[in-house]
Design a protein around this nucleic acid. Sequence first.
DNA 1: TAATAAAGTTAGATTAACCTAACAAATATA
DNA 2: TATATTTGTTAGGTTAATCTAACTTTATTA
Lengths: 222, 222
Amino acid sequence: MLSYTEENYLKALLKLSFQNEDRPEAGTNEMAAYLGVKPATATDMLKKLKEKDLVTYKKYGKILLTDIGRKNGIAILRKHRLWETFLYEKLDFSWDEVHEVAEQLEHIQSAKLVDKLEEFLNFPEFDPHGDPIPKANGDMPAIAKTLLAELNAGQNCKVAAVKDTSTLFLRYLEKLKITIGTKIKVLEVIAFDGSLNIQIENEEPRSVSMKFAESLFINQLP
Amino acid sequence: MLSYTEENYLKALLKLSFQNEDRPEAGTNEMAAYLGVKPATATDMLKKLKEKDLVTYKKYGKILLTDIGRKNGIAILRKHRLWETFLYEKLDFSWDEVHEVAEQLEHIQSAKLVDKLEEFLNFPEFDPHGDPIPKANGDMPAIAKTLLAELNAGQNCKVAAVKDTSTLFLRYLEKLKITIGTKIKVLEVIAFDGSLNIQIENEEPRSVSMKFAESLFINQLP
DNA sequence: TAATAAAGTTAGATTAACCTAACAAATATA
DNA sequence: TATATTTGTTAGGTTAATCTAACTTTATTA
Ligand SMILES: [Mn+2]
Ligand SMILES: [Mn+2]
Ligand SMILES: [Mn+2]
Ligand SMILES: [Mn+2]
């Protein structure tokens, strides 16, 4: 059985591996920063995880999940996202509130609980931020990876997921009435600063910054 | 903020205080046994809880919750019982499965979560074992304290709560189709061994042992 | 009441997860 | 390529929660 902390390291490594898709390994400092601990602490834990065959690790080398480490990491991620969905759908939490509580709930140990929860939620595919929820067998729907910023004038899309999950951004999205699934049309791309004029559903056109457009994953529409 | 372990000590002390109503204090060994640790461990923790003003404690003396300790204990108990209710009502857990998972869930820190959960469950008064669920302000419905064993031949009652929450007992109750709210009529009390002949709802009469009758709390019916 | 038993404490270790400070290796850059 | 910078490790400590073994206090009982 894994400790709370060990689980967090595995999940962190998994998420870092999603971030650099072509280079799924991470460094000690990178992990330490991600987890909010000092590098010395991470080194200790990585040695321990290596002993348990959850990561491959060599002195001064990069860190990679083993198959079993990955399996465990995905199980935590699954729980995290199912709980976020529960909080959002059933308990009326807003999407900027769910993460913090799910960070605790993801460590509850009960196979039955996860599976029953998934059933109760009707086997959701995506969490409130649009991130895919792994199935019990580890399968996971593909992650959207096109950014709004990559579109050209005239193109249509649907919001698939948020890249930035900060409260500041999520609150701003709410203000703009943007949520997962919202349709957006790009009216104009301003070459000067990369900002966009967009139409959100049938609202009045408005301008958003390049930073904004680089924080939203979308699925293109024909 | 209290640690997982500190919370468990407070809840334990609270429950022990319910058990001996006229003598709401506990001893070191009693607490240690309840929590499954050695007395030396409990002594250390009690000193720490005393420092934090959560219990009154003097060397070789009995232990009592302070007002603030009690308030905290009740908050944990509230979470425990709300989660048990959630698991039972929404996720189809059986009543002998809920406790173990609730033991973990009760330590999740989020005031909003508890209150939203309570609302989602429609402000339940009792958990799946018939135990009262404290309100957000600390109020708690009265605990049933009459045992089935205290009734005489001819008297009617409704099952209010289980005193013994062991899997063995709960499974046996299920087999007998007894749950919280089930009506029972005492047909005969056997003086020899304290066993009872009872009628469960409209089933065929049957005999139960004294041990059985001392494990069920009931509310008497006219 | 004196001896025995039960209840509770203390001292000293252990383990997990963290830290700082000093050092070593690998990488980037002048 | 030599030096500086970045990255990562080691040694030695701390804190929370646990333990065992030895000891002390309180309660029971002969
Ligand atoms: Mn999250
Ligand atoms: Mn976590
Ligand atoms: Mn319980
Ligand atoms: Mn607990």
